[in-house]
Design a protein around this nucleic acid. Sequence first.
DNA 1: TCTGGGGTCCTAGGACCC
DNA 2: TCTGGGGTCCTAGGACCC
Length: 443
Amino acid sequence: MSDSAPSQLDPIGGGRAIALIDGNSFYCSCERVFDPKLARVPVIVLSNNDGCAIARTAEAKALGIKMGDPFFKIREQCRRDGVRVFSSNYTLYGDMSSRTNAVYRDFSPRVEIYSIDESFLDLSDVHPDLRIELARDLRATVLAWTGIPTCVGIGPTKTLAKLANHIAKTQPALDGVCDLTDPVAYDHWLCRISASEVWGIGRASATKIEAMGVDTVADLRDLDPRPVRKAMTVVGERIIHELRGVSCLPLELVPAQRKGCAVTRSFSRRVEDRATVEQAVAAHATRLGEKLRREGLGTDHMTVFYHTSTHDRGDPMRSVSTTVTLPEATNDSLVLIQAAQLGVARTWREAPGDRPWRYSKAGVITTDLMPLAASPRALIGQMDRERSGPLMAAMDACNSRFGRGTVVPARAGLTEKRTWSTKFEMRSPRYTTQVAELPTAHA
DNA sequence: TCTGGGGTCCTAGGACCC
DNA sequence: TCTGGGGTCCTAGGACCC
């Protein structure tokens, strides 16, 4: 083997190149696209119910605002430091996500959409010397066409691409692109990055590998996979192989059929009465039906739960969960609502003392979803799909055109005012998906 | 009373991710 | 007053069977 070009003879990972591209502070960047005043000021986006910070711009991070910080704890600081605060606007973020992915597809036909702000691209066909240049072009094009700033990490495996992306994000000198298919970069960075940054190493695993003497990613890569498997299951073993350039996680070009679906929400205030809990789970069941219908899936059982909050120390605690079985699979909101109500009816109790249970959250969960068209029919209790299908389709069409909640089943008090609904007090307009909320330009 | 060696399926819980 | 929501995968252990 020649000393001069070992990388040509033995490229890490056999020449495969996977890129991971993601939006920087994605939700915040979406807000910035439509409001130039947000440029260069600290911005955060809150979780559902305006609970805690889930996206922060660099300026907000510099102020010490942490991922998951409860908003009520940082509200004062935000006011003082001029942090612009937004409720989450998933309609907007989902649409911006589609736009970025449309650009990605111009650069690679093989794209896996991994999450709302991250996609893997197969760049194996791009010559090694051109990968960085292509990644820069990709970033520039996404920024020009969607307004979203991104970072790109390239590696021979998904795990190394994720690591490269992390490096691109945290090393300003790299200008948003890091290529770990380059053996020089690979050797340089793996012994400089903490192993706890590796994709799949969470808190528990970080403690375990630390006990094995691991500090850097290179240390983790060089562990014997067998004891790692003992301690961290096959998941840990896969990470070792992936860090060595042996691919264990293929690109999923076709999204897998989802296995479960849930709609769960905290109440905006504590809830003590049965009618409100029933109304909430009925609303969640309605939403569940919409989600299932969009993907042609059905379910023949639904778990209903509601519980008090662990934060309410001193209050009586109660956590309820029950599974309602249906005669056959369905995605009909009317049936799902009935099931949700039954779940509450079965489990509702009045508190024994004079202190009522103060519920904080309720939800509906389904698992074992199946394509409705292929699901077995019941002998007894068969539902009228010929009627339900078109009815639900008509309802979905109205709600899609005129906004969610325009048509609701007249059940379970769904037409009554919802006093428990999740808070979104600082939500931006749905700039890109509602004509009435289009941004206005003044010239 | 004690003695065996497989299997499968299901569930709960842990861990991790975004 | 106020602390998100929605997923996936893996394993251990119990129940049950032959």
